Amino acid sequence: MSTKANRYAHQLMDARNHARLLPPLSASDELSLEDGYDIGKRILDASIGQGEVAVGRKLGFANRIISPKYGVNEAINMPIWSHIFESTVRYAEGNRGIQSLDGAMQPRVEPEVVFKLATTPAPDATMDELADCIEWMAHGFEIAICPFPDWKFEAVDAISAFGLHGTLIIGEPHVLSTATRRNLGDILANSSVSLSCCTEDAMTLCAAGFGSDVLGSPLHALWHLHQQLQNQTQFDPLTAGEIVTTGTWTDAYPVQAGQTWVTAFSGIALPGLTVSFV
Rank of each mutant, 00 (worst) to 15 (best):
residue 230 Q to Y: 00
residue 241 G to D: 11
residue 103 G to E: 08
residue 71 G to I: 01
residue 45 D to M: 08
residue 50 Q to T: 10
residue 205 L to I: 05
residue 74 E to F: 07
residue 116 K to S: 06
residue 135 E to S: 14
residue 194 S to C: 04
residue 52 E to S: 15
residue 120 T to V: 05
residue 116 K to D: 00
residue 71 G to C: 03
residue 220 H to N: 13
residue 208 A to M: 12
residue 236 D to T: 12
residue 23 P to Q: 09
residue 49 G to D: 14
residue 274 T to F: 05
residue 261 W to R: 06
residue 9 A to D: 02
residue 236 D to M: 12
residue 114 V to N: 07
residue 20 R to A: 10
residue 147 P to R: 14
residue 195 L to V: 09
residue 196 S to C: 12
residue 43 I to A: 03
residue 172 E to D: 14
residue 25 L to I: 15
residue 45 D to P: 00
residue 233 T to M: 10
residue 259 Q to L: 02
residue 146 C to G: 01
residue 96 R to N: 10
residue 236 D to C: 07
residue 65 I to Y: 06
residue 116 K to T: 08
residue 171 G to T: 10
residue 199 T to P: 04
residue 219 L to V: 03
residue 144 A to R: 03
residue 60 G to I: 02
residue 77 N to D: 13
residue 218 P to H: 09
residue 237 P to D: 05
residue 137 M to S: 04
residue 156 V to Q: 08
residue 110 E to L: 04
residue 45 D to K: 11
residue 167 T to Q: 12
residue 14 D to H: 09
residue 33 L to F: 10
residue 255 V to L: 06
residue 123 P to V: 09
residue 34 E to Y: 03
residue 2 S to I: 12
residue 137 M to I: 14
residue 219 L to F: 00
residue 266 S to E: 15
residue 169 I to Y: 00
residue 36 G to D: 08
residue 84 I to Q: 07
residue 257 A to I: 00
residue 46 A to L: 14
residue 158 A to D: 04
residue 141 F to Y: 15
residue 99 Q to K: 06
residue 207 A to N: 14
residue 22 L to G: 00
residue 214 V to I: 15
residue 196 S to I: 04
residue 155 A to P: 02
residue 167 T to N: 07
residue 95 N to R: 04
residue 136 W to I: 05
residue 8 Y to P: 06
residue 205 L to R: 09
residue 216 G to M: 13
residue 41 K to Q: 15
residue 17 N to D: 14
residue 186 D to P: 01
residue 250 T to Q: 00
residue 262 V to P: 02
residue 253 Y to P: 01
residue 152 K to H: 09
residue 263 T to S: 15
residue 150 D to Y: 03
residue 138 A to M: 12
residue 132 D to G: 13
residue 246 T to L: 13
residue 219 L to W: 00
residue 151 W to R: 09
residue 43 I to L: 11
residue 31 L to Q: 03
residue 30 E to F: 10
residue 107 P to F: 01
residue 160 S to G: 02
residue 82 S to W: 03
residue 64 R to N: 01
residue 217 S to L: 03
residue 274 T to P: 02
residue 72 V to A: 03
residue 257 A to V: 11
residue 41 K to Y: 15
residue 210 F to Q: 10
residue 253 Y to A: 00
residue 234 Q to A: 14
residue 219 L to S: 02
residue 134 I to A: 02
residue 32 S to M: 10
residue 89 V to P: 00
residue 131 A to Q: 07
residue 188 L to H: 00
residue 108 R to V: 11
residue 47 S to N: 14
residue 128 D to S: 13
residue 52 E to T: 05
residue 167 T to W: 02
residue 200 E to Y: 05
residue 83 H to C: 02
residue 163 G to L: 02
residue 191 S to K: 04
residue 147 P to A: 11
residue 44 L to A: 08
residue 34 E to K: 11
residue 121 P to V: 04
residue 250 T to C: 08
residue 43 I to P: 07
residue 200 E to F: 06
residue 140 G to A: 13
residue 235 F to V: 06
residue 63 N to M: 14
residue 54 A to H: 01
residue 217 S to E: 03
residue 274 T to A: 12
residue 30 E to R: 12
residue 5 A to S: 15
residue 170 I to H: 06
residue 92 A to L: 04
residue 137 M to H: 05
residue 104 A to D: 00
